[in-house]
Amino acid sequence: MNIFRLAGDMTHLLSIIVLLLKIYATKSCSGISLKTQELYALVFLARYLDLFTDFISVYNTIMKVVFIASSLAIVWCMRLHPLVKRSYDKELDTFRHYFLIGGTFVLALVLNEKFTLQEILWAFSIYLEAVAILPQLVLLQRSGNVDNLTGQYVFFLGAYRAFYILNWIYRYLTEPRFTRWIACVSGIVQTGIYADFFYYYFISWKNNSKLKLPA
């Protein structure tokens, strides 16, 4: 564990806390893409199957359980909570996320570290995570105005990815055999997807104005 990875994990955790806080405090999930949240739940379920087969550390186990539980809780809230579900921007959240699932699963069948169920699901979760934010970004772009907590949620998610890239650079330099191409290339693609959002986030921060994404 290095400082970059810890910072990445913590900003990831923070993004989820911000999202839960927004939903809990405002009883509203407006601006949040249910499609993206469902993709994240699927990502965590597919990747953390190794909870049952490998033990890495107490930290690792706790974080995995937290990520699975929180992502399922968010999906539950958005779909079933009587107050929260009313604010869901269904008509704006029309990204065809099943194509992302299908496409990344086929990719995982072709590009994996080993042709076993667990390795295929792991690669699938990496590819799917890389594109899972797309429905969220499309929803934000469509709605134009982004409320503060939603903006911060996406910002922390992007920060988490940026820290992971620093972590890989650090590991590559310090661990002689650190080569994890699937995770690293997918991670760079994933971070690249945030570039546009980051650009407008910093502009609004610099001008001390409300975050607005161009149509």
């Binding site: 990831h12 190794d50 550390s57 690792n60 992971y164 661990e175 055999r177 995770a183």
Partner: peptide, 10 residues
């Protein structure tokens, strides 16, 4: 398996 085969990241 090599040491970096373990998927220690989240």
């Amino acid at each position: 398996a090599e040491a970096d085969d373990t998927k220690d990241e989240l």
